[in-house]
Amino acid sequence: MTYVVTESCIKCKYTDCVDVCPVDCFREGPNFLVIDPDECIDCTLCVAECPVEAIYAEDDVPEDQRQFIALNAELSKIWDPIIEKKDALPDADEWASVTDKLDKLER
């Protein structure tokens, strides 16, 4: 099992999770993070650090977010690793509670 970043991260990109990851499995896109399923060791440390609760164990991803399992796998192959915390996007707090924002994902 791996962990998956879901829709809540889009346009927020808080990176608190990156700081605690012992294997550097996060990958960074323009306005979203993903977890590389081949690198994740299922340690759960990132889950508690996400201020928008965007990270789930693969088996616990909500039904309406299941497409993010494949999306994490796909984008982790093309995006670069992020290994240290950065500032969130400038308007992250405004987007934190917005739902249905998959169409805002920038590749």
Score class of each variant (00 low, 15 high):
62 P>G: 08
101 K>G: 09
59 D>H: 10
81 P>Q: 14
55 I>F: 02
21 C>P: 05
89 L>W: 07
86 K>Y: 00
62 P>T: 09
23 V>T: 13
7 E>K: 11
6 T>E: 03
33 L>V: 10
13 K>L: 13
5 V>K: 06
104 K>A: 15
97 S>D: 15
36 D>S: 09
34 V>K: 01
90 P>L: 12
89 L>I: 07
67 Q>N: 08
46 C>G: 10
86 K>N: 12
22 P>A: 13
73 A>R: 15
106 E>T: 10
43 C>Q: 09
25 C>T: 07
101 K>M: 09
30 P>H: 06
60 D>G: 02
41 I>K: 13
38 D>Y: 04
105 L>N: 10
90 P>F: 11
61 V>S: 07
25 C>G: 08
62 P>E: 10
41 I>L: 11
42 D>F: 12
89 L>H: 06
37 P>C: 04
81 P>G: 08
22 P>M: 11
9 C>K: 05
50 C>R: 03
98 V>Y: 13
16 D>G: 04
44 T>A: 15
94 E>W: 02
66 R>W: 02
81 P>D: 14
18 V>H: 07
100 D>L: 08
16 D>E: 14
89 L>Q: 02
26 F>N: 05
3 Y>T: 02
97 S>K: 12
57 A>I: 00
65 Q>M: 07
2 T>V: 14
49 E>P: 00
55 I>H: 01
60 D>A: 15
35 I>G: 07
82 I>A: 01
104 K>E: 15
49 E>G: 00
90 P>V: 09
39 E>N: 07
5 V>I: 15
40 C>G: 04
105 L>A: 07
92 A>D: 06
105 L>F: 05
27 R>I: 00
26 F>W: 03
48 A>R: 09
59 D>Q: 13
30 P>Y: 06
91 D>M: 11
81 P>C: 03
73 A>W: 09
68 F>S: 03
105 L>P: 08
87 D>T: 05
2 T>A: 14
104 K>R: 15
59 D>A: 14
60 D>N: 12
25 C>D: 11
39 E>M: 13
79 W>C: 00
64 D>H: 12
55 I>K: 01
44 T>W: 10
84 E>R: 12
57 A>Q: 13
67 Q>V: 03
29 G>D: 04
16 D>M: 02
84 E>V: 00
24 D>K: 13
71 L>W: 10
37 P>W: 09
18 V>E: 06
51 P>T: 08
43 C>F: 04
67 Q>A: 12
73 A>S: 13
65 Q>T: 00
72 N>H: 03
78 I>P: 00
55 I>L: 02
51 P>G: 11
31 N>V: 02
54 A>V: 06
101 K>S: 10
80 D>E: 15
21 C>F: 03
15 T>D: 06
1 M>G: 14
102 L>F: 14
16 D>F: 10
